[in-house]
């Protein structure tokens, strides 16, 4: 029994190492550079667990943003979860979560802050089941709930540093002032302004309104910004504007090269697998929850992915590397 767990632990560590290696080329685990023109598909890792896993997520599983980043992370861990995606409606998500629990699924990932209330109701009814919930910075005091959250301001800061090297006028397209979106936008602003760029951030008020995101990006473009960034699934509209106006773009959550292969400079990518692997190890050893874990540059949960197709100056890149090192060392406050 113990031997088996040990094997699994090795497998997890191996998987993480593999992931890091696959991302390859970077000087640290916190960065990677894609090969230009390469397929962005995530390679499936070796399975780290025999436990059954289910995922409930608000947007589509290939949204090039929040939900896809989780699916990709699970893929890296060799896990093929049962998926209920597109559950913007919390009631539907709650029904799905409860359904999976009743079906005896061991680990249920509720990938949406808005599911917290439902989870507080459901989790106590299924003490044998482990729930993984995020993004959230506390587990609501529930023993069988793990919470996770990205320190999105860290990657935002790094993106901001690079962006400032490209332009001194930067436009940001935010969705709603909440969660990792606001952390990313504010970290970005800090990083950019610390390096002498001026920024303008507009929150559209919607995670999904592509037309508003487009209009906002267009307004920034008309104002003459030299860099655009944005977050949420609606950001696809802003990326289009960036492409049409030949403005460099910075991504977050997932690698946005899928949207804009030429103009995406770098993306902060969430590697939930780092904390998931940690959690799964704990679950297998009998701890079903009771903790919140952060994705950081330090633990490899946040990875800065540079676009091999974008010709970024060595100076800019080394500035980014320096910023990452400083953040990890705690010498730069990104919040």
């Amino acid at each position: 029994m113990k031997a088996k767990r040990l094997v699994k632990l090795f497998a997890v560590i191996f998987a993480i190492a593999l992931t890091a290696a696959a991302c390859g080329g970077g000087d640290s685990t916190a960065t990677s550079t894609s090969e230009c023109g390469s397929d962005l598909a995530v390679a499936k890792g070796d399975s780290v667990t025999d436990l059954s896993v289910a995922l409930v997520a608000p947007s589509a599983k290939d949204d090039v943003a929040f939900t896809q980043s989780m699916v990709d992370s699970l893929t890296r861990l060799g896990i093929e979860p049962q998926i209920t995606d597109g559950t913007f409606v919390v009631e539907e998500a709650a029904a799905a979560i409860r359904g999976y629990a009743e079906d005896g699924v061991n680990i249920i990932i509720a990938h949406g802050t808005q599911y917290g209330g439902s989870l507080a109701e459901i989790a106590p009814d299924f003490p044998e089941t482990s729930f993984i919930w995020g993004t959230a910075s506390d587990n609501q005091g529930l023993d069988n709930v793990f919470a996770y959250f990205p320190e999105a301001d860290q990657g935002g800061y790094v993106n901001g540093v690079i962006a400032a090297s490209l332009s001194d006028n930067i436009g940001l397209v935010g969705p709603v002032e909440a969660g990792d979106a606001v952390a990313y936008i504010e970290g970005f602003i800090k990083g950019a302004e610390a390096n002498g760029a001026s920024t303008s951030a507009v929150y559209t008020g919607s995670f999904s309104d592509v037309a508003l995101a487009t209009t906002t990006a267009q307004a920034h473009a008309d104002n003459g910004v030299g860099v655009l960034t944005g977050t949420s699934q609606s950001a696809v509209g802003a990326v289009n504007v960036a492409t049409a106006n030949d403005i460099p773009w910075f991504g977050t959550q997932s690698n946005t090269e899928a949207w804009s292969s030429d103009l995406t400079v770098a993306s902060q990518v969430y590697h939930w697998d780092v904390v998931l692997a940690d959690m799964i190890t704990k679950i297998e050893s009998g701890t079903l929850g009771g903790e919140a874990m952060a994705l950081t540059l330090e633990n490899g949960g946040l990875v800065m992915e540079f676009n091999g197709c974008y010709d970024l100056s060595a100076d800019a890149k080394s500035a980014a590397e320096a910023a990452i090192a400083d953040i990890i060392a705690g010498e730069i406050a990104t919040k």
Partner: peptide, 16 residues
């Protein structure tokens, strides 16, 4: 809408 935005996305209209 979709041709102007040159994209499609889940619930593109967002209640339009």
């Amino acid at each position: 809408l979709s041709l102007q935005l040159a994209i499609f996305q889940h619930n593109l209209t967002n209640g339009l």
